[in-house]
Amino acid sequence: MMNVTLTKTRILEGVWHGVLSCSTSEDGGPSIEVTHLGQPVDGVSVSPQDGDWLLRVPIPAEKISDGVQTFIIRDVTTDEILETFSIMAGDPLSGDLRVELNLLREELDLLKRAFRHHCRTTG
């Protein structure tokens, strides 16, 4: 049995990159599947690199839509989930972020006013 660990390195130009490390004497490398909403993602590649394996997962443009889209990376041999990653996009998300940012700004202003008042009154 192969013990596989996955470390994300980056997302660049629509491709999720990671490094797979595994303890095995087999030359075939790990067997990986990536799914989105239960459907396999095409174009996933695993290639040898410096004693480890480079995993490349192209993020299909047709999978990007409003909300959060989650991709699951699993080891087919052990059926273990190695990693997940999510893509967030769209108007509903940006509205939520703006509201949170405005709340944070208001709280920061309140704290600044209270601190200034404290400094003036305690002299």
Rank of each mutant, 00 (worst) to 15 (best):
N3S: 15
N3G: 09
L6S: 01
R10Y: 02
L12Y: 05
G14H: 01
G14I: 00
V15Q: 03
W16E: 08
H17W: 05
S21A: 15
S21H: 11
S21T: 15
C22Q: 13
S25L: 15
S25R: 11
S25N: 14
S25F: 09
E26Q: 14
E26S: 15
E26V: 13
G28Y: 02
G29I: 06
G29E: 06
P30M: 03
V34D: 04
V34M: 09
H36Q: 12
H36D: 04
G38F: 02
P40I: 08
G43Y: 01
G43M: 02
G43N: 01
V44A: 03
S45Y: 00
V46Q: 00
G51S: 08
G51A: 09
D52G: 01
D52R: 05
D52Q: 12
W53P: 07
I59A: 04
I59M: 02
A61I: 09
E62D: 14
K63W: 03
G67M: 07
V68Y: 04
Q69D: 07
Q69M: 09
T70K: 05
T70V: 12
F71L: 02
F71Q: 02
F71P: 05
D75E: 12
D75T: 05
T77L: 06
D79R: 13
D79M: 05
I81E: 14
L82P: 03
E83A: 12
E83F: 05
T84M: 06
T84R: 10
S86Q: 10
I87N: 06
G90R: 08
G90P: 11
D91E: 14
D91I: 14
S94N: 10
S94M: 10
G95V: 08
L97W: 06
L97R: 12
L97M: 11
V99D: 12
V99L: 15
N102E: 15
R105T: 13
E106P: 01
E107H: 01
R113L: 09
R113F: 07
F115T: 08
R116V: 11
C119P: 00
C119H: 12
T122I: 10
G123Y: 08
